[in-house]
Design a binder for these strands. Sequence first.
DNA 1: AATGAATGAGTATTCATTCAT
DNA 2: AATGAATGAATACTCATTCAT
Lengths: 193, 193, 193, 193
Amino acid sequence: MPRIKTPDKEQAILEAAARVFSGRPFHEALIDDVAARARVGKGTIYRYFQTKEDLFFAAILHSFDELSAALAVSLERETSPVKRLERIAREVLSFSWERRDLFALLLSDERRFPEREEELQKRREAISRLVQEAILEGIRRREFRGIDARVGAELFRGMIRAANSLRPREETLDELVSEIVGIFTHGIERDGR
Amino acid sequence: MPRIKTPDKEQAILEAAARVFSGRPFHEALIDDVAARARVGKGTIYRYFQTKEDLFFAAILHSFDELSAALAVSLERETSPVKRLERIAREVLSFSWERRDLFALLLSDERRFPEREEELQKRREAISRLVQEAILEGIRRREFRGIDARVGAELFRGMIRAANSLRPREETLDELVSEIVGIFTHGIERDGR
Amino acid sequence: MPRIKTPDKEQAILEAAARVFSGRPFHEALIDDVAARARVGKGTIYRYFQTKEDLFFAAILHSFDELSAALAVSLERETSPVKRLERIAREVLSFSWERRDLFALLLSDERRFPEREEELQKRREAISRLVQEAILEGIRRREFRGIDARVGAELFRGMIRAANSLRPREETLDELVSEIVGIFTHGIERDGR
Amino acid sequence: MPRIKTPDKEQAILEAAARVFSGRPFHEALIDDVAARARVGKGTIYRYFQTKEDLFFAAILHSFDELSAALAVSLERETSPVKRLERIAREVLSFSWERRDLFALLLSDERRFPEREEELQKRREAISRLVQEAILEGIRRREFRGIDARVGAELFRGMIRAANSLRPREETLDELVSEIVGIFTHGIERDGR
DNA sequence: AATGAATGAGTATTCATTCAT
DNA sequence: AATGAATGAATACTCATTCAT
């Protein structure tokens, strides 16, 4: 009986690709590097992915899905809108920490690859929807005012992204999260105005 | 008498580079395209810029400087912090509209080219400083609470960046600006809480 | 009890190889294609043939041998030199009809693989010898003039090869055969000269 | 003023390609070899030819055209059909001598590259037509009997091709030529029959 | 024995950079 | 100074061959 395609080999490749594509621009990330990192023959990569670009996107999607899974766990049972926003911020920030460059593209809203846009968009929407739901729940609870949830969610994501590049040391994560959520919910206006 | 490097030729190249680098990833943007667009021989580009990367960064810096000039004009004589933030948001949004992709990198805080980081950083700081100053002035005027101006400025920039990718039609610019500044200053919390 | 190499599996592979190598140049004919066509695992092919080149030549030799067998049957009991030439022409033409491309190489006298040359040569000689014998018999019978039988045989084979690429429809086979043999025996000179 | 594309560079590449593609199968003929032989950078080849296959066909066509030119010179002023056939045979044989492998494809009537077939066919026809014309003239002069000139021409070309692979030493050229033309015109039938 | 997943040597092709004019 | 022809280093991708099962 022959060897069969092992899903874990595909996993290893995706993992390796995520690492390699993070930290250097696409054209400097070599398939050879991915192969070496995944401890896999170069040809093997091409058994699983048609082209370098395919691999690149697969790696992004894969990372995205990991993030989604982490978020699902984190948000479970938390109903308070503000706290949900906090968890989202914390989760996204800490998750994208090591994959900063990969996530640059992922979170950025480049539209350079129209063919892949759909799938990427789906993932972005998934995150965005979590934020929107928190906002809408807040509005329902009369904790938030009635803003456009979609716009609000995007702006919130924008803050997270920006925070990501503030490159906090570990310890600053909490502060950063509360700053983001604080500004997003209270604004920077002076109390009592 | 030998001809000398003409500044307008350099301008043309930078202009062309900005266009070409916008809308396609670095490795798909060809020097040939830039040369063609600038109506200049390929060799000529290398009289003005050492490498493709140099040209790339020069184009970014050039665009950045154009933005700064536009901002300087717009902010002149406006002293109200909130209004200054509004103008910054509006100016950045409308300016980066056509150069969306170039600005993605520009505003993003990738740190892939450590050698160039300094100059880029300087430009980013220039914009950031304008935001920080508005925030600090607001704090001084007791309109804003005492937040970390640097962090605040980054988060504000993050919202602008996000708004940029919401791709508003022309008409939505004002709404978007007021949404950004509204959330940034008042937060989304319900009034009267 | 271990299974053993089955001759019919080897047959299937050779058959498939003949098909695949026909109709596409060597470097475009893939082992995968042969395996698929033979409904056999790729590894299996390497149990029967050392290399792709080996398989290629084996396929040629195999086809050649089929032709030889067909010729042997056809020539049996026919003693007239002219009629023998006719049968050879007809047999070769009809046989190579479906394997036109494979035979192009087979009949062509490339000398690119000196190591294999010997075996190929042996096969070519086998056919050639049949022609030579017919010629020699004709000379013996005083039907033909005393030409160099080897050269004559080659030229005769060349005409067949050329005829093959004239791509006659089925019906033209007889005409073509008689044209070849007619020219070869009578020439195109006007009668009575 | 910039350097301009020099036709002689293209010539050099075609010349080199003809040499390299002769004597080894397509997939073993390396672009690097062609570049080295033409004393030209590898990239230069791609300035003149889109792909390796393009180069290959261009080399064939080029060789073909050289042959045609040689034939035109040789046939000038010779009106006797038999002598014209002789000259054609001699010219083709001696010309394709060194380019044997290249001509294998050229003369062979493979139809593997349908897109290029047209141009190749045009060249083959050009040679074939010369033979046909000689045959038709012979018929007109009542030196030849009324055969199908097209078929006759192909068979004649087939003999030449076969002769080419008989690999005569220099000295055998004349004999070979007269054997071919002899058989083609008189056949091998015994005189007086 | 048979299989097909895995491998990596081998190469066509691209494109930034150079340089003759 | 300006040009674009020439260059070759760099790399994605293929596919014959191997080998674990």
